[in-house]
Design a protein around this nucleic acid. Structure first.
Lengths: 192, 192
DNA sequence: GTAGAATCGGAACCAAGGTTCCGATTCCGA
DNA sequence: TCGGAATCGGAACCTTGGTTCCGATTCTAC
């Protein structure tokens, strides 16, 4: 476990051209995956990166591996943000800000949305752990918001994650982004 | 326009065996599409129905056409239900009952969910009209509920439809079905 | 500069699934 | 009962997209 293709650091010093190509593939893949999701063909990525498919496969054993490599850093940054907000002054605002931010990111990126929804693929291996980590980080945010009385107490971190993905989904259906988000946020507040 | 393959009534009296096969294909397709969504291969449907693929294609020019034929009646029944509830005593309850019902149906049926979300396919032609019709029927329900003060007034029918699909989506992510639905329903109520 | 290893590139391979084709079969009216 | 038209079935075809392979090319160490 852990042979995703090396993040580019330690294992074996790649040859100059190899490193260059690897970076270019990663760049292009990031852009295309985030925009279009897992649907983009490998060939398209290779062509756009100016390399052959063989080159892509030498660096990443499988399409899924490449997708994961990208999603890992995306999800990683989401986790970081959650952790940064963990000791904010206003726990309620922190939680809702986070919620809004993630939803916005997922809206503009089919790739992030897919990662959130886990549509059509498993992504167990590496991303699974990250997903759990994110759920925990968000759990902290949520718990603090609940203790501050800003969020209804019966909500779990898993529910909150589902709500985020659900709102992201709504935006693809023509519903007014502000309206749907407002509904869900209002619904997460405690009944009064 | 309108060559979906004939609903089985008027055009040309099919031969006995043809009619039998058509019905069987429709039955099996209904079951499989609703359960698994558009993903099921035509071959699987044909085999399960005990006919060859050629037979399926003689009755429905394309896979999409078959899918549409099924979804049409499904969506049709949703519309009927909305219309039936249009003059209920308690407009608020009618709207929320309807909302809950549809979400439940979408949850148990990947096919309905896909139809609702329109995932991956266009379905313009015939279903497009039905979708508009459903939006209207739901609009009526919504408007009455709003006039009765049970739903926040800034919500549109499109928003409501998006919310339904979103909630359906949430359920596939492990969130507690009751909790997420409760959040969204609470959020649709007027701020107080 | 040169040899050998690492890397490249893209043709070729494979699997999946939608769609077409046509000889074999079945139905139905005379 | 019989003949032709309608229908059947499933092999074959085509496209798409992931993955593998290997001769050609490029680096890098000497």
């Amino acid at each position: 476990m852990g042979k995703t293709g090396d993040t580019g650091d330690g294992d074996k010093p790649l040859r100059a051209d190899a490193r260059r190509n690897r970076a270019r593939v990663l760049d292009v893949a990031q852009e295309m995956f985030l925009a279009e999701g897992m649907a983009v063909p490998i060939d398209a990525i290779a062509e756009r990166a100016g390399v052959g498919v063989g080159t892509v496969y030498r660096h990443f054993p499988t399409k899924e591996a490449l997708f994961e490599a990208i999603m890992q850093q995306r999800i990683g940054s989401m986790i970081t943000m959650a952790e940064d907000l963990a000791d904010a002054d206003d726990p309620g605002a922190a939680f809702f800000d986070y919620f809004t931010h993630i939803v916005g990111q997922a809206e503009s990126s089919k790739g992030v949305h897919e990662a959130l929804v886990n549509a059509g693929f498993q992504l167990e291996e590496s991303v699974g752990a990250l997903a759990a980590q994110m759920r925990d980080a968000m759990g902290t945010l949520l718990k603090r918001a609940q203790q501050a009385g800003a969020v209804r107490p019966d909500l779990t971190a898993v529910d909150a994650k589902a709500l985020m993905a659900g709102v992201a989904e709504m935006r693809k259906l023509g519903g007014d982004p502000e309206a749907t988000l407002a509904v869900v946020i209002a619904g997460m507040r405690p009944h009064q």
